[in-house]
Simulated scan of single mutants.
Amino acid sequence: MEFGRWRRGAAALGVLVALVSATAACTRPATQQATGSGPIRISVGVDPSYAPFFVAEQEGMFERAGLDVRVVQTEGGAASAQNVVAGTSELSGNADSTALTVMAANPSLRALGVYEESDRYFQVVVREGVEPNQIRTVGVFPGIGLYFTDLYLRSIGLDPAAVELVTTSPPDHPPLLGRGDIDAFVSFDPWVSQAVAGGGRVVATSGDFDARYTQWLVATDAWLSANEEVAAQVFDVLSEAAAIVDTDPDRAARAVAAAIQQDPAEARRTIDQIDFGVRDFTDEDIARANDLVTFFQEQDKIGGSVDTGQVLQRGWVDDHVLGAATPAQSPR
């Protein structure tokens, strides 16, 4: 789904953070190598929202920090966090909504901090000839897609219960919209751009209806307890890479293109819709996580509850990640 996830006016600060993080990361003892614990596998999805991981991998930043890291590409969604649960990866990058649904069944998972967020990445598209108040059928994908659709419909005075929800995957939305099988959908690029090219139009971004997402770095409690210094080293590198993405999006787009074989121009468009930067959890993050859990419970999408005060490791980034700072919340 998801995803600091600081704008041009803060470019100088971002570069400074990157330089401090790079220098500090090299001064940490190479705990992973000393303990012989083997490679650190980080599961991520295959879209530009994972740009910091791809930049760090493509530019050898993990190696320079003395880390043996393998970035493992998955189909995204819950698969990345499920790899951590299964022990086939030590860490994963996940959108808040996805991580929480997996945490409901696996309370030993821990979110270490935020590395990106956005209130522009998700957009509302309607088909030609339909006004927002005329929406009767909406294409949705599970998780945050359902949550944002619910928020949008309520924001324009429509009762979600009175609208037909067609559950499908994001790639299906543009053709469904083009054929008139659905009136609208809430999603992200490239599906938004494809739908617009077919005659649809964007009528809102998630920020217009007070919706945003964050992406978190996730581990198990057991692994984190035994490898806290290594986790800090990884997040140091991720902080440096996120600063690069934020201040030099063309450089980041080239890394994304090389990693997932995507057109650099398309990668750049997506990167511009996301705010990248490492930070700790805030009161707002905790409140949003609780809202997500409540929504998924009401929709019978998760069983049980999630103790957000436990699974979100508030204070961990501030205590362990060198150079981490809370970014300003402003668009590019």
Rank of each mutant, 00 (worst) to 15 (best):
E228P: 07
A10H: 12
Q261T: 15
P29H: 10
A86H: 13
S239N: 14
Q233M: 09
V306F: 03
G4Y: 01
L100D: 04
S97G: 13
E131Q: 15
F54H: 05
R127Q: 11
T247Y: 11
S37G: 13
D275K: 08
Q329N: 14
A11S: 06
V15T: 11
L177Y: 01
D248M: 14
A24G: 12
R314Y: 07
R64P: 00
R201E: 09
Q32V: 05
W216S: 00
V15C: 07
T282K: 05
R279L: 04
G178F: 11
A231F: 01
G45E: 02
D119P: 01
G199H: 12
T101P: 04
T220A: 06
V126N: 09
Q73E: 12
I144Y: 00
D68L: 08
R314H: 09
A161I: 08
A242D: 00
V126M: 12
G303S: 14
L217Q: 04
L217N: 01
Q32F: 04
D291C: 00
S225Y: 09
M1K: 02
F141M: 05
A241M: 05
F3Y: 15
D291Y: 05
E240F: 04
P331V: 15
R201A: 09
L165F: 15
S193V: 07
S92I: 02
T294G: 07
A184V: 06
S92D: 04
Q33H: 14
P132C: 13
V186W: 06
A289H: 01
D246C: 08
D96L: 03
A34P: 10
D68M: 05
I156G: 09
G323M: 08
F3H: 13
Q299M: 15
T220R: 06
Q82G: 08
V306H: 00
T23D: 10
A104Q: 05
F53V: 03
S193C: 04
D119C: 04
E228N: 14
T205G: 11
Q299G: 12
V72S: 02
R154E: 14
S97T: 12
V130D: 13
L312P: 02
T27C: 10
T326V: 10
G303R: 14
V124F: 07
P331H: 15
W316N: 04
